[in-house]
Design a protein around this nucleic acid. Structure first.
Lengths: 338, 338
DNA sequence: TTGTAGGCGTTATCAA
DNA sequence: TTGATAACGCCTACAA
């Protein structure tokens, strides 16, 4: 593979490299016919601009970064798979590259990663999710004037383009539905307290209970790992209570998968003796047994929207609306009753 | 964020930038104490080398690419999620970056992507999977002398480091197990004919049938999309046959998830009236109902191994063994009988 | 052991 | 409308 540079095109056409460069970049101060000659030659010779050189000169990378909040071998949340594909599908449309890494388990390692990427100018901007109430990343990127967008916003008082799902309203509606189905002791299997979605969805749970005139029982709110294994464990534990719950509202589908499994192992008829529900609407939720009631959000589309917003910011063009509000769709399936 | 360059360190210490550069890179022709001064200053000033400049100078990117064989919104195979995390966990250990994109649906678009990445020198090497019997990517990268590694090898007569799972032996053993459980009409729900895994696993199916003295019936081999939805559809269709199968061997877990769902919808008791099995051992397979019998492969570790091999090739160091053979582990669970 | 200088491929600022 | 030229930040002969 002989790499063809702008200089070769110039020699080939007896032009200066400057002229070629301008023709390629579509500047107006070049004759129509010269431009065409250059374009044809470039096409024919298979010219593709060298990223590194362009980056060095323009002082930007045309790449965006996404750091997966994970790093454990078993990790497999369908959510991230769909999210990643959304990112991957959208980035090329803006002529951006997508750089990926995993954050590992420690916050310190996560910080190092972000700092390294920022300082070495690996990417022009970031996509964030799993936002925390007070999020170091938000503050750090803001301080350093690095563009970023996020799923959910943090409470650091910093404005940035984000997608906001109505977590609270969604879960409240879910709770009411489950209540209407005749379930009376609803538990909430959540995650780490500092996650934005945890707080928002838990608030929806409490709000829903209040609407239904049900008492809030702190024993019925547990903290799980964000995995099916975690959901399994906590769901079992809940059923061991002297006065166990008859419905399990899970922070996400992954946890709900584990909860379904646990309830089945305990010999319970799901949908009748116990209800289970998730959040996200990952495609696998349609294929559990029984199919999982969940709050469906368009993950793929959210990822695309985020990339679009970030691309606008990178181009210094105004993002129409800083916050895109989304209402999750309540997908009623058999896991919460026929 | 003021970006600190090698030059600033030089000025700060009254040294030439060359001296600083050498100290940083650990060359020997520099006095111990100067090196230390440089290292300290770099640390203190928060110096991180600029990627673009380094790339341009060294003519390599220190990045590897992985192009997801997907692009449909619903796409979510757990396999890729685990695979990606494996890649993401391993790349930083070799000081490599990971560049991701999605291939879209058309082969033409896939070709464009690879060509673009190669010509613009976005990455130094590639990770491939979903290898096809005769694979354009393998030939193209080989011709252009771009390092790559793959999961499975193609039949293009080109050597490259790869992980080779014993697909055939694995499925054959699975078939024998299912036969021992008393099932007699085994179907195979596969995928596109040109996929290496399809051919190898189908061969295992036939080999297993032969071992068990069962006849091969072409009606029982169907081609599905590689998704739960595809599995659902084909599984249903198979049961509509006048002489339907009582066991469904699926190309992967994703298809099996759909098959489980279909069998349940048809009111069959899975594990007794009909057996279902998958391949890959994604973590979700433990949480289906009933839990899915599958051939487990260490996806995360395979991804890591591939990155290691590629890193060695990029460093021009010999890869010990060009082919790492793996035997899948037969995970016997309830979907093929108690 | 250290400094000088040239260049990697592009883009942008000048003149011509 | 075009061409020469100087960066961008880093690396590495070669010279000192």
């Amino acid at each position: 593979m002989k790499k063809v540079t702008i200089r070769q095109i110039a020699e080939h056409l007896n032009l200066s490299i400057a002229a070629v460069s301008r023709a390629l970049d579509g500047y107006s101060d070049i004759s129509i016919e010269t431009r065409q000659r250059v374009l044809d030659a470039a096409q024919e010779m298979g010219y593709v601009p060298n990223r590194a050189a362009r980056q060095l000169r323009r002082q930007k990378t045309d790449a965006i970064g996404y750091i997966l909040p994970a790093g454990t071998p078993g990790f497999s949340e369908a959510f991230f798979s769909e999210f990643l594909v959304g990112l991957g599908d959208e980035t090329p449309r803006h002529r951006l590259d997508l750089l990926i890494s995993t954050a590992g388990s420690s916050l310190e390692r996560e910080k190092e990663l972000y700092r390294d990427w920022v300082r070495s100018q690996k990417v022009d901007g970031f996509i964030l999710n799993r936002i925390r109430l007070s999020d170091w990343r938000v503050r750090y990127l803001h301080e350093n004037q690095i563009p970023f967008v996020g799923m959910e916003n943090s409470l650091d008082g910093i404005e940035y383009p984000h997608v906001e799902v109505d977590n609270t309203g969604g879960v409240a509606a879910l709770v009411e539905h489950i209540h209407r189905q005749g379930f009376r002791r609803l538990a909430f299997i959540g995650g780490p307290q500092d996650l934005k979605i945890q707080v928002a969805r838990l608030a929806g749970y409490r709000q829903g209970l209040a609407h239904c005139g049900l008492d809030f029982d702190p024993d019925l709110v547990v903290e799980s790992e964000l995995s099916a294994a975690g959901g399994y464990q906590e769901a079992r534990r809940l059923r061991w209570l002297s006065n166990p719950p008859d419905a399990l509202i899970c922070l996400n589908d992954e946890i709900a998968f584990g909860a379904l499994h646990a309830m089945h192992d305990l010999g319970l008829v799901i949908g009748r003796e116990v209800a289970v529900a998730g959040f996200d609407g990952v495609s696998a939720s349609a294929h559990t047994r029984p199919p999982l009631t969940t709050l469906d959000i368009p993950i793929h589309q959210i990822a695309q929207t985020l990339v679009q917003a970030l691309a606008l910011r990178l181009a210094n063009r105004p993002v129409q609306q800083n916050c895109l509000a989304l209402t999750p769709r309540l997908l009623l399936r058999a896991s919460t009753g026929a």
